[in-house]
C-alpha cells in the first residue's frame, strides 16, 4: 500500500486548523485564454461573453470576461495546498459571489479564513469550513465563498512518531 502520508504536507490535517486563522496563499496565477476559453468550452458553456472577443469589443467591458466557474475554481485551487491537500471530500459551498469582473491578463491571488472546525460521522476525519477570497493584482476582491471540506485527522492518517 502506498505511503500516503509521505505525499502530502504535515500541516494540513484537521487538527492543524484554528478558527479565525487568516492565510494569504503563496501563489497567484495570471488568467489567460488557456484557463478561461479552454474551460468555458470544455464545460460546454455557450456564453459568447467568455470566448467571442469581437462581439465583446462592442460591449461595456470591451473584451471577454472570465467565466465565474473558472475564477472560483482557480481561487479554490490557489487555496488548496493549504486547506484541502489532506481533504477526503468536498462537501459543500455557499455564498459564492462575484464582486468584480476578471479579464484575460488579470492575476488572481487567494486568501482564506478558517470559520469552523467540527467533528464528522467518521472518526478518521473532521469538517473544516473556510471562507475564501479571490483578489486581483490591484487588491480588488473578485470573488468569495464559504466552503466545507472533510479533512483527514492526523491521529488516523498522519505520520506515526
Amino acid at each position: 500500500m502506498l505511503d500516503t502520508e509521505a505525499l502530502t504536507g504535515n500541516e494540513t490535517y484537521f487538527e492543524n486548523f484554528t478558527v479565525g486563522d487568516v492565510m494569504k496563499h503563496a501563489r497567484g496565477k495570471t488568467v489567460e485564454p488557456l484557463e478561461n476559453v479552454l474551460f468555458t468550452n470544455l464545460t460546454m458553456n455557450t456564453a459568447a461573453a467568455h470566448f467571442d472577443e469581437a462581439t465583446m469589443a462592442s460591449a461595456p467591458f470591451g473584451q471577454r470576461v472570465v467565466y465565474g466557474g473558472v475564477t472560483a475554481s482557480l481561487m479554490i485551487g490557489l487555496a488548496s495546498q493549504d486547506t484541502s491537500e489532506n481533504g477526503l471530500s468536498e462537501l459543500s459551498m455557499t455564498g459564492l459571489r462575484f464582486r468584480s469582473p476578471v479579464f484575460h491578463g488579470d492575476t488572481v491571488y487567494a486568501f482564506t479564513q478558517v470559520l469552523a472546525v467540527e467533528g464528522s460521522d467518521r472518526e478518521d476525519a473532521g469538517i473544516v469550513t473556510f471562507h475564501h477570497w479571490g483578489v486581483n493584482q490591484k487588491d480588488v476582491v473578485v470573488c468569495e465563498c464559504q466552503r466545507r471540506v472533510l479533512i483527514k485527522r492526523h491521529s488516523h492518517w498522519g505520520k506515526r512518531r
Binding site: 474551460f39 460546454m44 458553456n45 460591449a59 472560483a72 475554481s73 462575484f98
Partner: peptide, 26 residues
C-alpha cells in the same frame, strides 16, 4: 470544481447565454 463548472456550463444556453452578470451560487 470541474463537476460544478461543467453542470453550470451545460445549463448556460437555457439559462444565461445572452449575457448578464453571474451573481452567485448558494
Amino acid at each position: 470544481c470541474f463537476v460544478f463548472t461543467l453542470v453550470q456550463g451545460l445549463s448556460v444556453e437555457d439559462l444565461s447565454e445572452p449575457g448578464g452578470a453571474f451573481l452567485g451560487i448558494d
